[in-house]
Simulated scan of single mutants.
Amino acid sequence: MGKLLSLLLREDSCCSAQHKYDVFLDFENVQPTASELELFDDVQIVLTEASDVLSDLKNYSGADQHIRAAIINPSAEQNASTWEELIPRIRKLRRFYFFSQKIAFVVPQILNSICSDDITPSHQLERQQAIVKQFSEIIDFVFKFDEYKMQTPAIQNDFSYYRRVLMREGPSSYSTDLDDDSTSNLNIANKVSLFYAESTPMLRTLTNVTSQFLNTDKRLVDYAIEMLSTMVKVCIRMLETPAVQFKKRETHLFMLRVLVGLIILCDHVYPNGVFVKTSNIDIKGCIRLLKEQPEEIHTENLLNALRYTTVHLNDSSTSKTIKTLLMEA
């Protein structure tokens, strides 16, 4: 394994912990230890598919013209032609939905692994670097998926048309080549429709499954919250420490996305969010870090994510200083 990055979380750090401790991370070269290997291999299968999902989503091309043609000229021939064009797209959209269930399956396994309260979160991060990196990659995937989805309104247009036809004409009116049970197609369509109705469907999946994990074992709630907070602090220190030099520019961008994704996740699952004074995340320091990035590193989309996908920003407990700092250009 390559040289480890030594990261000292000092008391003068903008997001430091109360006490000094060392965290060692190497996201560019880390390899799983023997104790991590079984879970690592399982998660890696999901992450490999995640890359394909993002590629398909990024290149998604809607059936707008075909749908308009069917609306203008609802002949049997035109409807059949539109349906033929639509089904391959619906197959992809269903795949994305089913993949979200795979994310929901592996995240609790990761949390269960890294949220063992026998050692401190900082030592846990150091001991399970490969699993922590995979969790970070899932957060990065969630962030990218929802960003691409919001940039592609054709997704909801295509699926809404597909679902309307199923409901109007009946599940067996057209061949779908999606499921042997035509009734199942309609049931699944209803679930998929709810999934895409969310502005950030993968984030909703991640926050729901994380909240469910915390509710399952109350003993680990405080530890899990501290673990997520510690991950935020590690990201901050790696990004703000001049001695930390990433070999790849993408690693720096990756850390920025993970930082923002963690903050959003924390705001969703913490009882009072991350913007309250009692939060152990210095949100002002995090916002300033994003705004002080070099000009060639565009962070406006990350700031927008904090502005519009967190849940507690507009609470009365959020100071005007934080709101102004985040909302100003």
Rank of each mutant, 00 (worst) to 15 (best):
V221C: 07
T299M: 10
N187I: 11
L47P: 03
S193C: 06
D41Q: 15
V192G: 00
V43K: 02
F275E: 02
T230L: 05
A34S: 11
N304Y: 13
N304I: 15
E292F: 01
T183F: 08
S55C: 05
V53G: 00
R91W: 09
A130D: 12
L25M: 14
A50T: 01
R237K: 15
R307F: 03
N157T: 14
A70T: 04
Y162D: 03
F105G: 09
I45K: 13
Y162V: 03
L86I: 09
I281H: 02
S116E: 15
Y308H: 11
V269D: 04
V43G: 02
N272G: 03
T310N: 05
V165K: 02
S173G: 04
S75G: 10
A243Q: 15
L4M: 12
I119Q: 15
T210M: 04
I110C: 10
T207K: 05
R249W: 06
T176D: 11
D315C: 07
L303S: 11
F254C: 09
K144I: 12
T207R: 03
L166M: 06
D42R: 12
R68H: 08
T278S: 11
R163V: 08
N29V: 05
D117K: 08
K133F: 07
Q212A: 08
A80Y: 04
S116V: 15
C115Q: 10
L313N: 00
I131Q: 06
F105Y: 13
S182Q: 14
Q134A: 06
P108V: 02
V142M: 06
F27V: 10
L290F: 02
N29Q: 12
F141N: 01
S113F: 07
L7M: 15
